[in-house]
Structures are given as structure tokens and as C-alpha cells.
Amino acid sequence: MHIEIDEISKSFGTTAALHPVSLSLPSGALVALLGPSGSGKTTLLRILGGLEFPSSGRVMFDGQDATGLSVQDRRAGFVFQSYALFRHMTVFDNIAYGLNARPRASRPTKAEIARRVTKLLELIQLPDIGARYPSQLSGGQRQRVALARALAIEPRMLLLDEPFGALDAKVRKELRQGLRDIHDTTGLTTVFVTHDQEEAMELADLVVVMSMGRIEQIGKPQDIRARPATPFVRAFVSA
């Protein structure tokens, strides 16, 4: 799905988290929102997901105005920074949650839900953990379960908030490839937030560098490296 961000701004009380920003994300792209903390990247991601509403501006999905669309109706697969798995449910029930939450008319049968959950567990290469609880999983496993849970709703896009932030370096490298593979398999427009420039450069097709609520540069990783548009980008990507 093509995502168009048109002059979006967001302020919390008197502080501006986002100055008007515009951005066009081509369908099927893997996009990194890169910037230090406080740069507004997470706010932008939450606006895309419908968890925050912009103070001004519009969000367009495939040319249709989606600014006022409720979080439920957006069908954005969202992976939270701390994964936010439901701690009192098994992995199976976590992944099945979105399907069970559908209105009765469009809810798949129990057998169909079980089939889909099993398939997703295979996709994240953890076929045997359905009966476990989140507290019994490693950080990397939790991240993959969160990804499977987001994919279960057949999302129109995938939004990830610092998906590798809480993991150690070795697991992080593995999961990067995992996300790349899942993106390539599903073909979903995917946006992830990171403060790690190496991660953004290595994984994304398109990198959006942000600072202080503004977009500093949009471009392919190699272009940003070769031709940083502002002193901030130069300093940030060479760090």
C-alpha cells in the first residue's frame, strides 16, 4: 500500500513533536525512520498506526484520506518497542487475538484460526512454542511472536517501533535478516523506527532521517551516505 504523509504536524500541549512533514512511501517499500530520541520518529509512526492523531495535515493510504480512520479500521500491523505481548495469554492466543476480535460475521472458524496461527509460527521459525507464555520466551522469540501477531490480522502495512532495540547484538543481526525475509515474502509496505544508523542503512530501501520534529533527508542508504544533505545528517550517519 502506498502511504502519503501530507504536511502532518503534532504538538503535545505547547511542545511541537512534529513540525509539518511530508513524505511519500511507495507501495512495498521497507522504510526506516532514523533519528535520535526526541526527533519525532515514533510520533510519526504512531500517527500512521492511528494511535495518535495529527494536529494538522493528512495521511493518505492508496490515495484515500485515512486521517480520521480509527486505529481498528487502519489494519496496521504494529510491533511495539517492548513487544506488548499479552502476558496472561499463551503465544497461540496472542497470535490469534486479532482474528478472535473480528466481528462474528468475518471471524474465521476455530479450525481456520488454528491453521493460520500454525502457519505464522512456521513463518517466524518457532513452530513449537504455541503453548508457552510470553514470560517463558527469550527477547528474540518475543519479538518474532509480536511480529506474527501483527501479521495475523492480514495487515495493510507493517509498523515497527524500535523492533531490535531491546536485543543483544548477535540476535539483532539475525532478526534483521528475519524482518527482511518476512517483508520480501509478504510484500507489505513496512516502516520501522530506529536510532541505529547502521541498522537503518543495512536493512531499509528508503531511509528518512529525522531531527527535532523535522525531516532532514529522505533517500536510499547509499545516497544518504554519499551525499548527506545537512550537517546534522553528516554527523549522524558518520557516528
Binding site: V71, Q72, A101
Partner: peptide, 25 residues
């Protein structure tokens, strides 16, 4: 609030989020 937000993004209504996520927790 993260678990509640996650449930919302998965399509659950506010009422459903309360009964299936908030209250059990």
C-alpha cells in the same frame, strides 16, 4: 498502556480490550 494499544491495533473494540486485556492483567 502498550498491551491495550496492541489490542486496539489488532482490531479489538475498547470494551473488548477491557475484558480481554485490562481486567485479566
Amino acid at each position: 498502556r502498550a498491551e491495550e494499544e496492541a489490542a486496539l491495533t489488532l482490531g479489538a473494540s475498547g470494551w473488548r480490550v477491557f475484558w480481554t486485556v485490562t481486567l485479566p492483567n
